[in-house]
């Protein structure tokens, strides 16, 4: 289970662009390659922008889950670009 491999978590609910993207970048620096970062974020504008910038940075979104109260949980593999 990819959930068991989560090495770090980040809650960016209520954090606007581009601060949320900067926070992801900083968090990613603390993680080893192929480590999994769990990100909790709001739907709406954040979900329009965050996934595409994660992809652009070369990370891989491995799981997306809709969670209550209009939020999403993303599991992102660091530098995991390319299909798995």
């Amino acid at each position: 289970m990819v959930e068991d491999m989560v090495s770090s978590q980040l809650d960016i609910r209520g954090v606007m662009c581009p601060i949320n993207i900067v926070q992801i970048k900083l968090k990613m620096k603390e993680i080893e390659n192929d480590g999994i970062l769990e990100i909790v974020l709001d739907e709406g504008e954040t979900m329009q922008n965050v996934p595409r910038s994660i992809k652009k940075e070369g990370h891989k979104i491995v799981k997306v889950e809709k969670i209550p109260e209009g939020c999403y949980k993303l599991l992102v593999r660091k530098n995991g670009g390319g299909l798995k």
Binding site: G44, M47, Q48, I61, V64, Y72, L83
Partner: peptide, 14 residues
């Protein structure tokens, strides 16, 4: 065949 049904595209589309 490549789609995992994650719903991100529906969120991303304005």
């Amino acid at each position: 065949e490549l789609c995992i049904g994650c719903r991100i595209c529906a969120s991303a589309c304005r």
